[in-house]
Design a binder for these strands. Structure first.
Lengths: 353, 353
DNA sequence: GCTGGCACTCCTAAAGGTGGAGTGCTAAGA
DNA sequence: TCTTAGCACTCCACCTTTAGGAGTGCCAGC
C-alpha cells in the first residue's frame, strides 16, 4: 500500500478505466481500454500500470483472468480529483424549473423534486422533508365545521399547513373561536413547534385559574393538535424501480434488503440528516455511508434551504457504478431550484407589481 | 371443453390442489396431493380426475412430466364457489383499529390503511384516494401571511384541507380578507369542487361591474387556487418490495414492467375506479383485469365510504398465487374500518358528551 | 521503460449424462 | 363401471465435461 503519488499517466488511465466501467458495467481489460480510450501505449504497458493501481488498492480483479473494476477507494479518488465537471447546458434547466414552480405547496414541491431526480438520473430519488419540530410556528386558526367539530389549522413559517379536526367539549361560536385564535397567536406566534408544544404542556399543568377561560380553551384545543399531529413521512422516495434495471443488483438477497431499507427508511434518514449537518454536496460511496443496507450503493446528497437556512437534504441513490459527474450536477441544480421554489421572498415572484 | 358440472369429488380435489399450490408455489403432483390432503383414493385415480380437470381448462401442466397448476379459470372457480371463509378472529381486528383511529387527517388514514394492507398481507397495498373534483366544497379561508402573501385554505366536506399561497395584486387587510371569504362562502359553500371551478371561470368572464369589488377580488383569488391546486397523488401504494419475494415474479422483465405499472399508476387507477363503480369486493385474477401490466397479478379490491357514500377503493396486488380467503377478509375489514374512521358522524366518537 | 509474445488462469456457454418426479395408459380386481 | 397397481415414457433440474475466449503475468528483446 505504498502511497506514492500517482503519475499523470496512471491518473489518466484510472480515469479512463472508471469511465468505461461506469458505461459498460463490465470489468475492463487492458486491450479494450487501449482501444476505447485511444491510448498511445500498448496493452502490455497498461497491464503494468494496472498492476500498480491494484497494488494501491484503487482497482481490483474479480478473478485472475478478468479485467479490472474500481474499488471504493478508486471511486473516491475519482470523484475527489478526477471528475470533469458536467457541462450544465446538457441538462435542460428550463425543464427543471417548469417542474418546480415557485409558490407551490411545499409538500408538492418536495414530491416533484424527488420525482425529478429519479426521472432524469434513472436512479432512485430521495428527499428528506424539513423537520416540523424545528420549524417556526406562524399562526393558528380555529374553524367551526359543525356543532361539535372544530378544524384546527396550523401554519408554519415555511408556509406548510397542518390541520386536524377535533371535538371540543363544549360548543364555541365562530366569534369565540376567532378570539381564542387571536389570543393564542399573540402569545405563541414565531416560536418553534417544539417550543410551543412544551409550553402548552406546562400551561396545562399550571393553575388554570390564572388563565382566562377562553385562552384556557384555546390552549386545550391547540395542545390536542400540537401533541397529535403526526410528523408525516419524513422521507419521500421515488423511482426505486429504476434500480431493478442494474445487473449488479440482480442478487435477489441484496435487492430485497435494499428495498427494505427504502421502506424502513431509518438508515437513509440518518445518512441524510448527517449530510444536512455538514452542508454542501456529499457523496457516499458504497460502505462509506456506514450502513450495511446501503453497502452496494452510492448516495449523492445536497442540502436545500428555505430563506437561506438549511432545512433538509435531497439526493440520489444508485449503484456505486453511477455517472457521478452527471448525478452530481443534477443533484446540485435540483437542490438549488428546490431552495428557490421554497423560498418566499424570492426575487422572481410573479406578482410583484 | 365439456362443461359438465364438477362432481363433489373433483371439486374437493381442485380445492386441495389449489390450496397446496398457493402454499408451495410448485406444480402439484398426484402422489404429493394424496399425501398432503390425505385423500382416500390412490394417485392413479387422482391422475384420472386431474386429466378431467385439465380438459375443462381448470388446471394445466407446465410440461409433460410436471404436476398441475391452476389456470385463471381454475382460480376463478375456486374463489367463486370453493372458498372457505377465513375465521375473522384470526386477524386481530383490534390491531387494525389501533392503526386507523377515527377523526384523523384523511390523508393520514389513507396512508395508514395502505401500509396496513401491505404489512399484514405481505403483498402490495393500494388505496385510491377520493377524487377532489367530485367532493364537496365546504368553506374557504383567506389568511394574511405577510404584506403580499395570502394563504388560501380550502376545506372539503370530507374534512380535507387544501392550501396554497398566492400573491394578490393589492394589499388586503385581515378584515377585508375575512369579509371576502364570508361573501365567497355564502355563495359557493356546499357545491362540488368541479362545479365551483366552472362557476368561477364564468364569473370572471362576465361583466365585472355587476359584482361587488371585494367579491370580485375573492373570486379572483379563489380562482387562482381552484384552478391550480393539484389533484395530489390519486393513488397510495405501499409494500411493493414485498413482491420481490415471490419466485414467480423473478422474471426480470415482468417485474420491471409491474413496478413501472405501480409508478405510472394509470392501469391500476382505471381498474380501481372501475371497481368502485361496481361496489362490493372485486377480485381480478391475472389477465381478467384487462391490463397487460397486471397480467401476472391478481387484485383484490373493495370500495370504502364516507358518510355512506362510496368515495374510493382500496385493495391488494399480488401474484395470482395468493391466499385469497385471507386476503379477501383483510381487504374487507380494512375497507370497513377505513370507512368508519373517515365517517364523521360515527357513533364511536371520543367526546360526545 | 515500453512492447510483443507466450503460457496460464478462469469464466462462460454449450453439450452431454443421469436421476427423479410425474404422467398416460393398460390390465386386473372390486 | 369405477378404482388401482404396474410400467414405459417424458422432461426437467442438476451435474459434469468440454471447448473457447478474454484477460493476465512475466520474460526477453528493442
Amino acid at each position: 500500500m505504498s502511497m506514492v503519488a500517482l503519475t499523470p499517466r496512471s491518473e489518466r488511465l484510472l480515469k479512463a478505466l472508471i469511465e468505461q466501467y461506469i458505461v459498460e458495467g463490465q470489468p475492463v481489460g487492458s486491450r479494450s481500454l487501449v482501444k476505447q480510450a485511444s491510448l498511445e501505449f500498448s496493452p502490455a504497458t497498461v497491464r503494468n500500470i494496472m498492476a500498480d493501481l491494484e497494488e494501491m488498492g484503487l482497482i481490483r480483479s474479480p478473478h485472475t483472468s478478468a479485467g479490472r473494476v474500481p474499488t471504493e477507494l478508486g471511486y473516491r479518488l475519482f470523484v475527489n480529483t478526477l471528475l470533469t465537471a458536467q457541462p450544465l447546458e446538457m441538462i435542460n434547466i428550463r425543464d427543471f424549473e417548469e417542474q418546480l414552480p415557485s409558490h407551490q405547496d411545499p409538500q408538492f414541491l418536495i414530491e416533484a423534486a424527488s420525482g425529478l431526480l429519479s426521472q432524469v438520473t434513472k436512479l432512485a430519488g430521495v428527499v428528506r422533508v424539513p423537520r416540523r419540530a424545528h420549524s417556526g410556528f406562524l399562526q393558528l386558526e380555529f374553524l367551526s365545521l359543525s356543532a361539535h367539530r372544530v378544524l384546527v389549522i396550523l401554519v408554519t413559517q415555511e408556509g406548510q399547513v397542518l390541520n386536524r379536526v377535533i371535538q371540543p367539549k363544549r360548543r364555541y361560536s365562530p366569534a369565540e373561536l376567532q378570539e381564542a385564535a387571536n389570543m393564542f397567536n399573540s402569545v405563541y406566534a414565531g416560536r418553534s413547534f417544539e417550543d410551543v408544544r412544551r409550553s402548552l404542556v406546562r400551561a396545562l399543568e399550571q393553575d388554570s385559574e390564572a388563565m382566562q377561560k377562553l385562552m384556557r380553551s384555546a390552549v386545550e384545543m391547540a395542545h390536542e393538535v400540537f401533541g397529535e399531529v403526526a410528523e408525516g413521512d419524513p422521507l419521500v422516495v421515488s423511482g426505486e424501480a429504476n434500480l431493478l434495471a442494474f445487473p449488479e443488483l440482480s442478487d435477489r438477497e441484496k435487492l430485497k434488503r435494499l428495498f427494505d431499507a427504502f421502506n424502513a427508511k431509518q438508515d437513509l434518514l440518518s445518512l441524510l440528516d448527517q449530510s444536512m449537518a455538514v452542508g454542501g454536496i456529499q457523496i457516499f460511496i458504497g460502505g462509506e455511508s456506514g450502513y450495511e443496507s446501503l453497502e452496494p450503493c452510492s448516495v449523492v446528497a445536497a442540502p436545500y434551504e428555505v430563506d437561506g437556512k438549511i432545512v433538509g437534504t435531497l439526493g440520489v441513490v444508485g449503484p456505486t457504478r453511477m455517472s457521478y459527474n452527471r448525478v452530481i450536477s443534477i443533484v446540485d441544480v435540483t437542490a438549488r431550484l428546490l431552495s428557490g421554489a421554497l423560498t418566499h421572498n424570492a426575487g422572481h415572484g410573479t406578482n410583484e407589481a
